[in-house]
Design a protein around this nucleic acid. Structure first.
Lengths: 340, 340
DNA sequence: CTGAAAGCGCTTACAG
DNA sequence: CTGAAAGCGCTTACAG
């Protein structure tokens, strides 16, 4: 199947005129090696373009130079940016990034575990706490994107507070200051999972801030569980019918959701932002081009990618002396455009 | 480092009360095994959640269940959709997708080669033909997204004609039929590579169709090599100044580029589409929300993902009896919206 | 029909 | 200071 013969340690040893053992110790740099031998090994490695066979190393418990990213929506603009940032850093260490949409079953956990990733970044609200705990328990270095409460997870891991809780509160605050009192939160498009909506930190931030302002806060103020734009449209109509009044401020799960909401609301004949203010999350490129342009909570995606790699590296290299969890706090920023 | 003991073949053998050899033959299904033994092995595998250690298998030349995607812009909407489609199919085969931005050096080729991917999808115009040939020569199953001419590549591989050549011609046709005669093509934002612009099939389609109509076709009708929105703005100004006339139709490398162009053109005081018609590529979500909404060449991304997996699977499983190259032809579709 | 054994390319404890 | 050797978890040719 493989046509080209791979260069092995034996080839390097022969080329350098040393034993294979010496080659190994040069590569791993964990034993004194005669300076001259070391030099000739290094020369041979360069000449032959040798890379240690990573499968063989994995078998001996060494690193595989593969990091996995598990997310609900790996194709989104949001993860795209995070992953591409990680990939840049990873490549400099000869490391690859793998991707997987999250599945919430035990088979999935096993599959991931058996694939010898050096570390895993999880950015998923689909994956249950129980299964995340299982993954942490395997001992693989793990970093969680803290878009929900993970304080129950025990063991050694890292987490990145992406700041969306505060971001959601900022949203409500901005809407409140525009005189909006009748707020609505439109949750993500629910593909299938049917996870309860209230585990996401946007939800909590939204309600906590409403409570602080002592304005209407009722579970009915959340639109969720829709599977298409049409269904969202129907749910919004229904909401207005039930409540007998039109919301004057809408916070949306992402900018994509906000775009759909804007279209629907405009179709209904309302003016944005005169009648209704709208804010999305992620500050995607799309928001600069909508009409009106979209206000959005900017999540520091580049920072997330960097932090993730930083924490993973620390866990991978120094797991034994880590005080867990390693927490990194990031800050969101509300980008104000015309929609509010 | 790894806390949990992995379940090995030996564990399964013990549980099932058979030799390890038997377990292997059951897993690989390549030798007769006593029915009863087979059943008890299967039972043990289920019970213990056993997965063969993929590193050990890789070492023996078996599949690694890892496919690599190499692209210029892995974070784009476009690749996001392709990759997510591939991932769905891959997951059903317990296979992971890895990602890598393309680098055009020999070190990169080596790195990729040494990582034991079962197959590689290349969607990059940055990677030189020479390096692609190198990769094909390693014997790893490879599928090329044919956004440029790959007819010089020899050996066994697959390619997917994404249809952008025809798509570009459709663009020009649509613009021509709107009475546009003064056309411009805005190439991709050039991050650094500085690859000549004319290897991309959009470019060729654009000029071939201009020639067919026998209207102005000059190398100056391409804006390229800009590294930021500002630089694009300057280049567009410069173009108009040099040509002493405003283009009445602009074809853009992607919808993202088209969005920038639209903003610039609107800032200049021109009306879209009265003064200038604009078309992008990819039919990204963004085009539905711009003002005016954006016409775009839809590239069948889901199909690309499916085809890529199909061809890769074929190359991986039956490489010996493949007649190369395996070619899959896909069709683009021009989505007309307000911008034209 | 099936088991014992060689070997994939490494790492590193062990023994000099 | 350094080499020969065991062993990681598999696959499969070889020998019954």
């Amino acid at each position: 199947m493989r046509n080209l013969k791979r260069v092995t340690r034996a080839d390097v040893a022969k080329e350098a005129g040393v034993t294979e053992t010496i080659v190994s110790y040069v590569i791993n740099n964990n034993r004194y090696v005669d300076k001259e031998k070391r030099l000739s090994v290094e020369k041979a490695i360069k000449k032959l373009h040798y890379h240690p066979n990573f499968a063989a190393r994995a078998l001996k418990g060494k690193k595989t130079d593969h990091i996995l990213v598990v997310a609900d929506d790996i194709m989104s603009d949001h993860f795209g940016k995070i992953i591409s940032e990680m990939e840049k850093i990873a490549y400099d260490r000869n490391c690859f990034i793998s991707l997987c949409s999250s599945r919430n079953d035990e088979q999935f956990i096993n599959l991931v575990y058996e694939h010898f990733f050096d570390g895993i970044l999880i950015g998923s609200i689909t994956l249950s706490e129980e299964n995340i705990q299982r993954l942490v328990d395997t001992g693989i270095p793990i970093v969680l994107l803290e878009n929900r409460d993970y304080s129950m997870i025990t063991g050694i891991y890292g987490k990145i507070d992406t700041g969306i809780y505060t971001g959601a509160r900022q949203c409500v605050k901005a809407l409140y200051e525009k005189g909006r009192r009748n707020l609505l939160y439109v949750d993500r498009m629910d593909t299938e999972s049917g996870q309860p909506v209230h585990i996401d930190y946007r939800y909590n931030g939204f309600f906590d801030q409403l409570k602080e302002y002592n304005i209407k806060h009722n579970i009915s103020q959340v639109v969720y569980g829709y599977k298409s734009e049409d269904e969202l449209r129907r749910k919004l109509f229904q909401y207005i019918k039930d409540e007998q009044k039109v919301p004057d401020g809408i916070m949306c799960f992402t900018d994509d959701v906000a775009c759909m909401v804007m279209e629907i609301v405009k179709d209904m004949g309302y003016h944005i932002p005169l009648d209704i203010s709208i804010i999305g999350f992620n500050n995607s490129k799309i928001g600069r081009y909508t009409s009106p342009t979209l206000s959005s909570v900017e999540i520091p995606r580049g920072e997330i990618g960097k932090s993730a790699m930083k924490i993973l590296t620390e866990l991978i290299d120094h797991k034994e002396d880590v005080i867990s969890p390693i927490v990194e706090k990031l800050k969101t920023r509300l980008v104000i455009r015309e929609s509010i």
